[in-house]
Design a protein around this nucleic acid. Sequence first.
RNA 1: UGGGGCGUCGUCAAGCGGUAAGACACGGGACUUUGAAUCCCGCAUUCGUAGGUUCGAAUCCUACCGCCCCAGCCA
Length: 567
Amino acid sequence: MTENERAEAGEPERPRDFIREIVEGDIRAGKNGGRVHTRFPPEPNGYLHIGHAKAISIDFGIAEEYGGLCNLRFDDTNPVKEETEYVEGMKHDIRWLGYDWGDRLFFASDYYEQLYTWAVELIRKGKAYVCDLSPDEVREYRGTLTEPGRESPYRNRSVEENLALFGRMRNGAFPDGSRTLRAKIDMAASNVNMRDPIMYRILHATHHRTGDAWCIYPTYDWAHGQSDSMEGITHSLCDLAYEIHRPLYDWFLEALGAHHPQQIEFARLNLTHTVLSKRKLIRIVRDGIVKGWDDPRMPTLCGLRRRGYTPEAIRTFCERIGVAKRDSVVDAGLLEHCLREDLNRRAPRVMAVLRPLRVVIENYPEGIVEQVEALNNPEDPAQGTRLLPFSRVLYIEQEDFREDPPKKFYRLAPGREVRLKHAYFIRCVDVVKDHAGEIRELRCTYDPQTMGGSSPDGREIKGTLHWVSADHALHAEVRLYSHLFSEPDPAKLEGEDLTQFLNPTSLQVLSDCRVEASLADAGPLQSYQFLRQGYFCTDPESRPNALVFNRSVALRDSWAKLEKAGG
RNA sequence: UGGGGCGUCGUCAAGCGGUAAGACACGGGACUUUGAAUCCCGCAUUCGUAGGUUCGAAUCCUACCGCCCCAGCCA
């Protein structure tokens, strides 16, 4: 929705950041005829992650807010790294986030011919030349950060010779790496990117879209700005890493006299307890530290989706972190908070016992099953109620019983009374142990007067436990996930072996859980709140007779905090 | 070291010369048939440091300090 619609709907205005300020200023000044047109330009060489979600939310979000358009353009200029599979995955993830590029799906490879024509034009203008230096020589000639480079001996070839050579490059007359087309700028420039940057390299490789039509491929620098220009982009928003490339971006467009979008850079996202660099994520997958790109511990969009994250939570997160130019590391807790906030409103409540402890209600008749009514979501009464079977033998959570309860523990203990959510008050009268001294079972009594969870005498019960009827509950596997890294900022530990900072308990599999029967036909990726525990979703691997749930995020747990502080 | 950026609460982040928003986290309390949610309250006399300009500075100037990025025929 636009800012106006937002204001009319009484929604808070989106915080204005420096990019929106520039865009608004341009609109006011009538630049580009008041038009706003952005683009999201991923290279199809991997999977999108939460950092890309930030960029997507900026690119698509700004266009949407100012009544403009955002293109999806794949920056596919390197045939050896890119694959169609990634293109499809990225399109899927962007749509999943809720963004739409309409009919504006483009590829840098769509522009190869125009790029070639423009390169010829620069040669004609004496602004580009074919260079025969080898890769090593190019590096040598480039100089260093503190010393100027030297001009290539091929720098002053005639236009005719350059034209002929460039034509032969295209026609496959030369082997890989033997020649390049370079912009003729300034080998003494303090910005190394301006020291005659390479525009084309020879690569006899099959491209995922153009096949073998080309054996020379444009570099990022030569392709990106010109692609933006051809699409009529007004604001080319990108990572801070490209700030140093902006003079070159501007130089090419200036030399061509073509439509000149404004490049604006913002800081990329960093998140605590994870890494977002493609290189490191690949290692994590390849080394088998996780089970794949969509492992629920991965910060990839497919991983987050499988973890139970909703597009709404991710979009809210992207709005809250803001947009600025300083390097920062956002607390992963904020992402989790956004998920809880969204799921709290939407996820139906169900009861599931992760670590079962058998409870026998001694004074409850055998063979009787009562149906108790339970609210599906107290935050949303429209979600209705359901019936839960209650019987003589139940399961409760092991951690909800303490033989020797610490102070402020108001769950079950010998002689103590607690409420079973939606059902009765029960009192523990005996603890049954095995030969090893392990607690096997609790013997309890119930108060028939307390059906529904309250007593006629109004006696106060502080503890309320979730439970499940032993005969009616379903077996399930539950996967508990937490941070991949125990180190808050693993990205900082450059050069170190990241595996030593892994969280050894980032995945805990509980295979003997019991969940209420209503979960029997839970569809894939359905989110639930397991009462008192957290938000969980059905894993895609889940089957009716082999249920599997992923913990998306735990509920806040002030008792755990209290106990930790006290003990 | 040359160049380009950036430094405001534990973490993000507003602020644009008129006397430090908000969010997360954290602490305290209320409420509670989820120790959840919700609701209150608290949480930077100070803006990397030091000078200067000004009636007045986080905002302007100067110097210094710190962090990030650039020497791929990757993007």
